[in-house]
């Protein structure tokens, strides 16, 4: 049985966000080996996965649901352009609404319910006290544009990629907790363009292989991969838009506060074919855990040390870790008997 969402905690200002022991136990630790290396590392997202895990269902709803939805509301209020959908993506947005509402109501019947009579749908989200009737496919029958409407009810960032000419284009999305990329700037880019700033991988042919794989994903066979970086404080919105507000936090890591302030940030990325539009859903579900909490698991602590220690300099720079990388490695070394 899943833990019900907690009361609202914050991802800014006083940072009251915390993980319960159960949330720590189910944290999707991303490193399969001691040395970090680049790979496409995509695997089938077969559901249901292990009971209670982050991989159990298509969309993971956990104890941070209310907090993350409140945070998303703050970001959108400050800057409504953090959500966009080009006109040709309307059908894809409805594909996403169907996929989300059907799976949420089946996977979490205690929190969500859906009843359908042809195109007349009735949706209830008991956690957010939403109770709406609308006509499927008719965007005017929703209280908000379809991408924003469903995006405000799902944890994690969402992008819908239009597939044309064997390529994928970033033509719709709601991105309020990104690891340093801007939907407004990257809008409309091809797969390789929006990955343009990523070092090393292009030369290794990673994106050619990934693109070939992704464009061929059939309906009903989602795949997933994990990505990661480090974040100072439990800040969800580490976007370029708000960088002037949080950039200075990177200079505040000391040997004394690493455990409390530094967080491992893991993205569970799921790619799922949208049936009617042939678009590809790219959902990026973000999990944050403080180093103190992470190191309650000795295996994770040891491995985290080894991964950071062997991380190539290009990636240290790209992930924005330069200012505190050495401090973090030194602090973690106490958990590694080989150091």
């Amino acid at each position: 049985m899943r833990l019900a969402p907690k009361q609202i905690e914050t991802f800014r200002d006083d940072f009251t966000y915390s993980n319960s022991p159960e949330a720590i136990a189910r944290f999707p630790f991303p490193f399969p080996e001691d040395e970090y290396r680049y790979s496409v590392n995509i695997e089938p997202h077969v559901t249901p996965g292990p009971a209670g895990s982050a991989f159990e269902f298509l969309f993971d709803i956990d104890e941070h649901y209310l907090s993350e939805m409140a945070e998303r509301g703050i970001v959108l209020e400050e800057n409504p352009k953090r959500c966009l959908a080009m006109p040709h993506m309307d059908l894809a947005c409805w594909d996403l609404i169907e996929r989300a509402m059907v799976s949420l109501s089946e996977d979490y019947p205690q929190w969500f319910s859906l009843s359908r009579d042809g195109d007349r749908w009735h949706w209830q989200n008991h956690l957010l006290h939403i109770d709406d009737e609308f006509v499927f496919g008719d965007s005017a029958s929703l209280p908000q544009p379809p991408m924003e409407y469903i995006g405000r009810q799902l944890q994690g960032d969402l992008a819908l990629l239009d597939q044309r000419d064997g390529d994928l284009f970033l033509d719709a999305g709601i991105v309020t907790c990104p690891a340093d990329w801007s939907l407004a700037f990257d809008a409309g880019m091809s797969f390789k363009e929006w990955h343009g700033p990523v070092p090393l991988a292009h030369e290794m042919g990673v994106f050619e292989r990934a693109l070939k794989y992704l464009t061929a994903i059939p309906v009903g066979s989602p795949v997933r991969r994990l990505n990661w970086t480090l974040t100072v404080n439990a800040r969800m919105d580490t976007s370029p838009e708000t960088y002037p507000e949080w950039g200075h936090e990177r200079t505040g890591i000391t040997a004394e506060n690493v455990g409390e302030k530094l967080h491992l940030r893991v993205e569970l990325q799921v790619l799922d074919r949208m049936p009617r539009s042939n678009a590809l859903l790219f959902s990026i579900r973000t999990y944050l855990i403080s180093f103190d909490d992470l190191c309650t698991n000795p295996d994770w602590a040891r491995r985290m040390h080894r991964v950071l220690k062997t991380l190539p300099p290009e990636l240290i720079e790209y992930k924005g870790l330069s200012r505190y990388h050495q401090t973090a490695v030194d602090w973690l070394s106490r958990f590694d008997p080989l150091s």
Binding site: F185, D186, A187, G188, M189, E193, G196, P197
Partner: peptide
């Protein structure tokens, strides 16, 4: 100013 370019913008 970075080398990341948007054809749309």
């Amino acid at each position: 100013v970075r080398d990341h370019f948007s054809r749309l913008h």
